[in-house]
């Protein structure tokens, strides 16, 4: 092979790999990214059951029911709309009523959000960033300095 041919093989190979990579990335971006919604947005968008998304908001006070084995039921609220959630598994250490939470999963046919992942980070004052931003938009939350250990959940109103 001449130098020129070698180079064209090399360049051709690179192009092929890059084309595959771009194809995969575009496919994955269209298929596997997960949007983040608040309960109000879920209601407004009328999401179809079976579509994966992340649901974020506050755990409604007094809504957590643990009486059926390890399946936990609770309600995520953004203070405008509520959405019931079921989750089977061990909740994170900082899952608390009145605190911010992000659940990932999909709506069931009965309108209950079936979560397979519940996130709350390992920080007392941590509000999952998406939740904080959404709540800020709605003026329900001011910033990390206001969420102290003694903040009563009702004060979030």
């Amino acid at each position: 092979m001449t130098r020129k041919q070698r180079r064209s093989v090399l360049i051709g190979g690179c192009m092929a790999v890059l084309a595959v990579a771009v194809g995969l990335v575009l496919f994955a971006l269209s298929d596997s990214i997960v949007f983040f919604y608040s309960p109000s947005e879920v209601m407004a968008k009328e999401l179809a059951p079976g579509q994966r998304f992340r649901l974020g908001g506050l755990v409604e006070d007094g809504s957590v029911e643990r009486n059926r084995g390890t399946t936990v039921k609770f309600v995520i609220t953004d203070k405008a709309k509520d959405l019931p959630v079921t989750y089977t598994g061990v909740l994170p250490d900082l899952f608390r009523e009145g605190q911010g939470v992000v659940a990932e999963g999909m709506l069931g046919p009965d309108g209950v959000f079936q979560a397979d992942k519940v996130l709350a980070k390992h920080d007392e004052n941590y509000m999952p960033p998406e939740v904080a931003a959404k709540l800020k938009e709605q003026g329900l939350w001011e910033g990390p300095e206001q969420v102290s250990r003694e903040t009563e959940p009702s004060k979030v109103n």
Binding site: D31, V34, R54
Partner: peptide
């Protein structure tokens, strides 16, 4: 201002086949 999360599925579709 749209919030998304790119989780493991994205990387499983792209990184692994590559």
């Amino acid at each position: 201002n749209e919030k998304i999360s790119v989780g493991p599925p994205f990387f499983n579709y792209t990184f692994v086949p590559l």
